[in-house]
């Protein structure tokens, strides 16, 4: 990784460590101001108060503002949105700067966001853009901090952004992303269990549960699609036995699909796939529609688990 900021065709991916929103505003205003002076397009993503504070401090900047609460954020959708935005700017002479105030996250959500950070290095590599992912140090335990340092080629803590010796790209660390504990639902008795279901039978059974759980029509449609795509993947890419389990509660449905294989690439599902792609579209759509997706690779095979509830903003973005 070169230390030259903003070389043509190179995405620069910085980790910003800060002590809270007030300090983050102070750290980011000069970055946005510099970008504005250089004629860069600035994309600002974070909580409404933060976005407002930057926008009013640098009124001259060409700002693309996305104000979202932490519970509205999810990794694959955010990465797709970044690809779309940068793709639109691709033809213009302007460069792009991205300020991304990362949301607070649970341990489960962290598993998705670290895949996002690794996938950004790949998916955004071709764009002439400089992105800063800002994490509040108060929310980072030593393990998360070490992982974030490994996934960002540059680190800023304080005024300066410097090359990061701990960066280890998309190597062995990423290969172990799916070696995680089982999803907690797997330790409980499922509402539904099917051995070797055809995709159509799996859809029918999950449709019944989704209706019983009282999910909104859109949430029903999304969980049925996700079930169909993951069962199909189990048959096409995995190894027998394909097993479907589901847990239904009021307003919530969790589905797990297992097979005996080694599972997909640990960044699968994060990077946009189009009509020309040979494979990977189904899993990407699952991530685009459903915020809560968990992957696990174990000795007994691979399991993908996803949950929807009535509030899931499944068609947002």
């Amino acid at each position: 990784m070169t230390a030259i900021a903003h070389a043509d065709g190179a995405f620069r991916h910085d980790l910003v460590l800060h002590d809270g929103p007030a300090e983050l505003v102070d750290l980011m205003v000069p970055f946005v101001r510099e970008g504005a002076a250089a004629g860069d397009h600035v994309i600002l993503l974070g909580e409404p108060d933060f976005v407002d504070a930057i926008a009013s401090a640098v009124p001259e900047a060409l700002l693309d503002m996305i104000a979202e609460r932490p519970d509205e954020r999810f990794p694959a959708r955010d990465l797709h949105r970044a690809q779309q935005t940068l793709g639109r700017l691709d033809g213009s002479a302007a460069g792009a700067r991205i300020v991304n105030q990362m949301p607070a996250m649970t341990d489960q959500q962290w598993l998705g966001w670290r895949r996002y950070e690794a996938a950004a290095n790949v998916a955004l590599a071709r764009f002439r853009a400089w992105g800063k992912c800002a994490h509040d140090v108060a929310a980072l335990d030593p393990r998360r901090l070490a992982e974030l340092r490994a996934l960002h080629p540059f680190v800023q803590s304080g005024a300066d952004s410097v090359p990061n010796a701990d960066f280890d790209g998309v190597g062995a660390r990423v290969d172990r992303f799916f070696d995680v504990p089982r999803h907690p639902a797997l330790d409980t008795v499922p509402t539904l269990s099917m051995l070797a279901p055809a995709a159509g039978a799996a859809r029918g059974a999950v449709r019944d549960l989704a209706v019983r759980a009282g999910l909104s029509p859109t949430a029903q449609e999304s969980v049925i699609l996700a079930t169909s795509e993951t069962v199909t993947n189990g048959w096409v890419h995995g190894r027998p036995p394909v097993v479907l389990r589901a847990w239904a509660g009021p307003g919530r449905l969790t589905v797990a699909v297992s097979d005996g294989g080694a599972g997909p690439d640990p960044l699968a599902g994060m990077v946009a796939q189009t009509a020309q792609a040979v494979s990977g579209r189904g899993l990407w759509l699952v991530h685009l529609l459903i915020p809560e997706v968990h992957h696990r690779r174990g000795e007994d095979g691979y399991t993908i688990t996803f949950s929807v509830d009535s509030g899931t903003a499944v068609t947002a973005g």
Binding site: T218, E221, S222, T274, A275, R281, L285, V314
Partner: peptide, 15 residues
């Protein structure tokens, strides 16, 4: 097309 199908056609760039 349902809202979901509409969205899939859009994000998959099926032009």
């Amino acid at each position: 097309a349902s809202p979901l199908v509409t969205r899939l056609v859009d994000v998959l760039a099926l032009d």
